[in-house]
Nucleic acid binder design. Structure first.
Lengths: 136, 136
DNA sequence: GGCACCCGTCAAAGATTTCTGACACATCTC
DNA sequence: GAGATGTGTCAGAAATCTTTGACGGGTGCC
């Protein structure tokens, strides 16, 4: 609603999101965090997974902008990192994919350049295609 | 939108879609096919990729229901396999992921554990979450 | 001091996925 | 026949992702 500015997602960004979500464990992590946020160790116990592993998965999810970690201080002084799910909204359609593919860095025939491109930097915004006409 | 029956996508099915799309080459393939359908060898030439490789990618995409291959007979008798992009529509949100995660087979705690992913069967069905009561 | 809990990281195994170079088959044309 | 095109498959290398078992640091409590 107020969020989701709208569809200016880089190919690279979308790629990160898709490959991040394309993993059973990571899906499960998102599910668990959606039900209730919590910190790494607890989450690890909840879904039965080693801390190092979970850590790495969370990192991947955060890099894709799907979850965010915040360092919080418990009452007894323990520092714990809580993770929350980002309210992302991505609409996947052939067009969206095609458009994203056009801005892929790496092996692309990108529009002219190959310098680690136009990643909006910190985009964790959802992708929304505004309806438009596409002569094809 | 007559299509998009509405969100009855298996976790496994969604997982396939996401991991299929989470690959630069495959995104590019979808993009190329969206612009104009064509057959394997030609496509391979167009995007500069070995036939065996492309074949495998197409298979992955088709398994996810994102493209469909049809065997057609050219005028000179050559049999060629044309590929088309399926007009899929998937909406990715934390909820969709969570719900999908609940029906994952494999290492899941799935409610009932079904033998194999049961998709709508039909290739071009998208996943749509209909807004419903969900207070978190 | 011990113990519990929290946070992180590293290096090496293990399992997948990706990619390549053959090979098989078919048809039509020269 | 040899050559062009098309289809598909297979086995093995190469690269990547996943997973594990140490380690390191920190705090507070008995």
């Amino acid at each position: 609603m107020p969020e989701v500015p709208h569809g200016v997602t880089t190919g690279d960004a979308l790629l990160k999101v898709l490959s991040a979500l394309g993993n059973p464990h990571r899906m499960r992590i998102v599910a668990a965090l959606l039900e209730n946020r919590n910190y790494v160790s607890a989450l690890a116990r909840e879904i039965g997974m080693g801390r190092p592993l979970l850590h790495m998965h969370l990192q991947r999810l955060e890099a894709a902008g799907l979850v965010t970690g915040t360092r919080e201080l418990a009452e007894d002084g323990k520092t714990m990192k809580y993770y929350d799910v980002t309210p992302f909204v991505y609409e996947l359609t052939p067009h969206v994919i095609a458009r994203a593919a056009a801005t892929l860095t790496g092996t692309g025939d990108g529009p002219g350049d190959d310098t680690a491109g136009r990643t909006t930097g910190r985009p964790d915004r959802g992708a929304q295609e505004d309806a438009e006409e596409e002569a094809k």
